[in-house]
């Protein structure tokens, strides 16, 4: 299809090389564009440092403040550490999710993504990847901070698996809600209100899984929680994929 377009320009910009486009689409092309969107967000973050830094600073603050709040009344840090971990992830995550489409909206760049010859779910998955990197990175910071501040052995493979799956489900829902709320009035305060009640299964499964592992439970004791997290991830990635195109059909 590209061959018909390769007419070289003439005149002052004659030097422009003809455009060669990869023919056809297919999965490989789709994945390349998903990665292009994700890489663009990650690179912009490397240059601007607007999102990740505030997420991590907020999360460390949250862990410390929870520590102070519980210090006097809770006999064992182990009892509150799972809750602190997951509440901090959810709250810090909102900061990044708000910027995900908020930045495109503020700078008016969303039409550029919509003009591209690709299924618009590529925008969704690209943003999911970028948001996942930010949120999971923040979650790791929270894990380490909680480990030191509460002196609780959170750095265990099963907890990592839980945080990984929980974060994926969180950004799967969070990215589509961010796209929904981006054009609404007061989007910054709206997003957490939309997001948190829907995230209750992830929150409960995450807290329960972490608590069970801290109490010495093994894989067999947390399979139902891992099941909830995997089920949540799958359901929302699929439903979001089906619905996302309709969000951006007219902006």
């Amino acid at each position: 299809m590209a061959t018909t377009m390769a007419t070289p320009l003439s005149g002052p910009i004659q030097a422009l090389p003809p455009v060669q486009m990869r023919a056809g689409g297919g999965l490989a092309s789709f994945l390349r564009k998903v990665w292009a969107v994700a890489a663009k967000d990650l690179r912009a973050e490397l240059r601007g440092r607007e999102v990740f830094s505030s997420m991590t600073v907020f999360s460390v603050l949250a862990v410390l403040i929870f520590g102070m709040a519980f210090d006097l009344r809770v006999p064992e840090a182990k009892m509150v550490a799972p809750g602190v971990l997951w509440v901090s992830i959810l709250f810090a995550g909102v900061l990044g999710l708000n910027r995900s489409f908020g930045a495109e909206m503020d700078r008016g760049t969303l039409p550029a993504l919509l003009l591209a010859p690709m299924d618009r779910s590529a925008i969704y998955f690209g943003k999911v990847i970028a948001n996942f990197v930010f949120t999971f990175g923040t979650a790791l910071v929270i894990l380490v901070a909680t480990f030191f501040v509460y002196d609780v052995d959170l750095l265990q493979p099963l907890i990592f698996a839980g945080v990984l799956l929980g974060t994926l489900g969180y950004v799967a829902v969070g990215t589509i809600f961010a796209a929904l709320s981006a054009s609404a009035r007061a989007r910054e305060s709206l997003l957490p209100i939309l997001l948190l009640p829907v995230m209750v299964p992830v929150f409960m499964a995450g807290v329960a899984l972490t608590a069970v592992v801290l109490d010495g439970g093994g894989l067999a004791d947390v399979t139902n929680w891992l099941g909830i997290l995997i089920g949540f991830d799958l359901i929302f990635l699929i439903v979001a994929y089906l619905l996302f195109d309709m969000i951006l059909e007219e902006v």
């Binding site: 060669q20 292009a36 240059r47 760049t109």
Partner: peptide, 22 residues
């Protein structure tokens, strides 16, 4: 339709990828 934090080249390179340019 440009990203402030990216350079001119990076902006165009991003669009080249979205348009499957080889």
């Amino acid at each position: 339709l440009l990203y402030d934090n990216l350079s001119a080249t990076e902006n165009l390179a991003f669009y080249a990828r979205l348009y499957d340019m080889e």
